[in-house]
Amino acid sequence: MSILVNKDTKVIVQGFTGKEGTFHASQCIEYGTKIVGGVTPGKGGQEHLGQPVFNTVKEAVEATGATVSMIFVPPAFVADAVMEAADAGIELAVIITEGAPVKDMMYAKAYATKKGMNTIGPNCPGIITAEECKIGIMPGFIFKKGPVGLISKSGTLTYEASNQVVKEGLGITTAVGIGGDPIIGLSYKQLLPMFEADPETEAIVMIGEIGGDLEIQAAAYIKENISKPVVAFIAGQTAPKGKRMGHAGAIISGGSGTAAEKMAALEAAGVKVVVSPADIGKAVKEVMGK
């Protein structure tokens, strides 16, 4: 078991024939992901990476039965691509593109929600179910199969955390990079219950950062609903106020969204919060009693 995606998940790629789309789609295929086709308007009927190319998502879905779309289109076209996927009946859109305007995402996400489509990202590494299905840009070899679910706002910190977990002799069920933009798709609060319900997941790691209050919402949710042990790390404990730390959403504004308040809320919810990012793996082992 796992959450959201597995070895049978059929995936199409929007922005399939572009440079990024091509490189990462071929890496995903190599990992074992069932990439069943892609969409590049104007290139319908061609074949790319051994898979059919379609002009529209609607055609792609009808022909392949895909339920997930991985989106690599340039920032200005992300909203259009997400809405097209939602309109075509895609169930989950994984948006890798960095730099999509916030206003666009506001409209796109509202429409996706209306159509019942889940989104992950934008500006994220994607989602991976270890040794089954990789939809994104993460280095697959770091994610060995095991009992730990992972939710993270940061790409490289996801790799770091997974690496530590694996070094402790454990591994990952599914890892989801939710992205660090001001408006994102699935967040801790929606993913936590999925991990709670997944019989293979025994513990959950959540990696947050400064800005916004998703981690605070997660803390409230964990307190009431999550029985599995949770380990958390919040990046940006030393970040100055009012400065955007790389990610568009990583900013302490008006004194709120600090690491300290998030860490306190999570701790109060019974989460094992580590101060050092080097202690994530050890803490997971500890809370699992292994």
């Binding site: 993270s152 706002k153 940061s154 790409g155 490289t156 910190l157 996801t158 770091e160 660090g180 990696i207 950062e209 400064i210 790390f233 990046a235 940006g236 404990q237 030393t238 970040a239 730390m245 790389g246 990610h247 990583a250 690491a259 101060v275 050092s276 990012p277 080097a278």
Partner: peptide
């Protein structure tokens, strides 16, 4: 990576 960069400052 931005997240790892913040985490590096923290450690």
């Amino acid at each position: 990576g931005a997240g790892l960069a913040m985490a590096t400052m923290d450690i």
